[in-house]
């Protein structure tokens, strides 16, 4: 006859409470702590955010997070709807049917195509999903090569060589270049040239 009292809602409370507490211990603490411990031991660089430090040990960013570049001498990241904010990241969430988006793209395209360089690659006039897109498609990098070469007084072919070296090619995705990595490499080039 014990089955009749099992219909009572309170008889479910004990297993429900116990399982929530135990699952919190196992999946809420045990699992992430175990993954953290092993992950930190195996891949310390990545587990801590793939940080980039300079010679003094100052953190200059993460290789995975886009930075704002505005100077002529840098390759520029894609435009960011969240203005490169990292807390919190954001997107424009605008559809192509939105006149505000078309207007914004038209304005940016006019600004970018000054050197009569058209068409402007899409990646340079569209904001990314995260607002922190660290990469550019190769065409969007090549579009900027001339400007960077002029500002840095480097031969465009030297820069093109760096671009080619740093292009990430994958059998399952588009060819892209990490903007931060490229800018670090180009500015290192500049330094070498300046030293006698």
């Amino acid at each position: 006859m014990h089955d009749t009292n099992r219909h009572n809602g309170f008889s479910y409370l004990r297993p429900a409470l116990a399982i929530i507490v135990l699952m919190t211990l196992i999946t809420g603490f045990g699992y992430p702590v175990l993954v953290s411990a092993i992950g930190q031991a195996l891949f310390p660089e990545q587990a801590n955010g793939s940080l980039i430090r300079d010679d003094q040990g100052v953190v200059r960013g993460s290789i995975l997070i886009a930075q704002r570049f505005e100077g002529e001498e840098w390759f520029h990241s894609r435009p960011s709807a969240g203005d490169f904010a990292t807390v919190s990241s954001g997107a424009s969430n605008m559809a192509a049917s939105n006149p505000a988006l078309v207007e914004r793209i038209a304005k940016d395209a006019a600004r970018l195509s000054v050197g009569a360089q058209t068409p402007v690659p899409l990646a340079l006039v569209t904001t990314s999903g995260s607002g922190l897109d660290p990469d550019l498609p190769v065409a969007a990098v090549q579009f900027q090569t001339e400007r960077v070469a002029r500002a840095r007084k480097l031969a465009p072919s030297v820069i093109a060589g760096e671009v080619d070296r740093l292009t990430q090619r994958s059998p399952i995705g588009p060819d892209v270049v990490n903007v931060l990595q490229l800018n670090l490499a180009i500015s290192a080039l500049g330094n070498e040239d300046n030293t006698p």
Partner: peptide, 11 residues
């Protein structure tokens, strides 16, 4: 194809 709201590495 539009890249608004899309990441370069995914396309």
């Amino acid at each position: 194809g539009s890249l608004e709201g899309k990441e370069s590495r995914f396309g």
